[in-house]
């Protein structure tokens, strides 16, 4: 990174603001993050590999990734419906509902966690009706998935809304005038146009779910090998002063997050540049 503005610019303040930005970024973000990687590197490959492939850890990966994937898929389907409904239709209460979509962003995760548990516990608001049917939600992977749907929902809806609003009516009219049914217009004209936004929203919901902690720990039950998510396992290791264990597992999760971040950035680049090959 060059500290000299490439173009001579008469506006003042470049040096101090960029300097402060880099200093603050370094102290708050980069230095602590590098502590994690260095600590992890200090473990040595064989010890690192042994920790991150322990059966209990692998079980937590499977649960975390599986539940996150299912939650993100459900959010993609329902989020698309919600976004479409909010952009295209008018119905009473729409404004309130639109504002409420951000609730999972605004509500502290611990609060969502205990609220969802109160609802889905065997004697809870909804749980008591599911219990006789043999459906257990709280303290099972199903409960974890529900918590992850809750936290991921705004990502899909909020990414799709502008994409749907930007769709030009003329394209749908052109499809209709060419004889396409509404279904065909949706699958062949609308869906391809909003696909990048849908995938981006899906990836963001998935990424958020992978690292989620607060809203899950209360409803999960936290049984090793069964309902223990990876974030909780890191906390458990820390509480047992097993710093190498916590560090190694955290490194794996952080790498997964970075891969997803890269994917999201590539999706957004693709959305902006596709179908614009060299003229």
């Amino acid at each position: 990174m060059s500290l000299v503005a490439r173009k001579r610019n008469v506006l003042p303040g470049f040096g101090p603001t960029l300097g402060f930005t880099l200093f603050y970024l370094g102290v708050i973000v980069l230095l602590p993050l590098s502590a994690l990687f260095l600590k992890s590197a200090g473990l040595g490959w064989s010890q690192f590999w042994k920790i991150v492939t322990e059966p209990r850890v692998v079980a937590s990966y499977k649960l975390t990734f599986g539940a996150s994937l299912i939650a993100a898929l459900i959010n993609a389907v329902f989020g698309l419906m919600v976004a479409w409904t909010l952009v295209r239709y008018r119905f009473p209460g729409k404004k309130v509902i639109d504002a409420l979509v951000d609730l999972p962003f605004a509500l502290p995760t611990a609060v969502s966690g205990i609220a969802l548990t109160a609802i889905y516990a065997p004697n809870g608001w909804i749980g008591q009706y599911l219990e006789p049917l043999g459906i257990k939600v709280a303290f099972t992977p199903l409960g974890i998935t529900i918590a992850l749907i809750f936290v991921g929902l705004p990502f899909v809806v909020r990414t799709l809304q502008p994409a749907i609003a930007e769709l030009e009516k003329e394209h749908e009219e052109a499809a209709a005038s060419l004889g396409a049914t509404r279904f065909h217009a949706f699958t062949r004209v609308i869906l391809p146009a909003i696909l990048p936004a849908l995938l981006t929203g899906f990836a963001m919901a998935f990424a958020r779910a992978l690292g989620e902690y607060g809203s899950v720990v209360f409803i999960a039950g936290n049984m090793p090998m069964k309902t223990e998510i990876t974030s909780l396992l890191i906390v458990t290791k820390l509480e047992q002063y097993d710093y190498p264990g916590a560090t190694a597992i955290a490194t794996v999760m952080l790498m997964a997050s970075f891969v997803l971040l890269l994917t999201i950035n590539m999706l957004q680049y693709w959305a902006g540049h596709r179908h614009q090959g060299v003229a």
């Binding site: 030009e168 009219e173 209709a176 049914t181 391809p192 146009a193």
Partner: peptide, 21 residues
């Protein structure tokens, strides 16, 4: 009869070409 069954060719002012095709 809905638009799709009227067998009309409609040319839009701003083309309305499907940009992903």
């Amino acid at each position: 009869r809905p638009v799709g069954q009227r067998r009309v060719g409609f040319v839009f002012q701003h083309y309305a070409l499907f940009r992903h095709m």
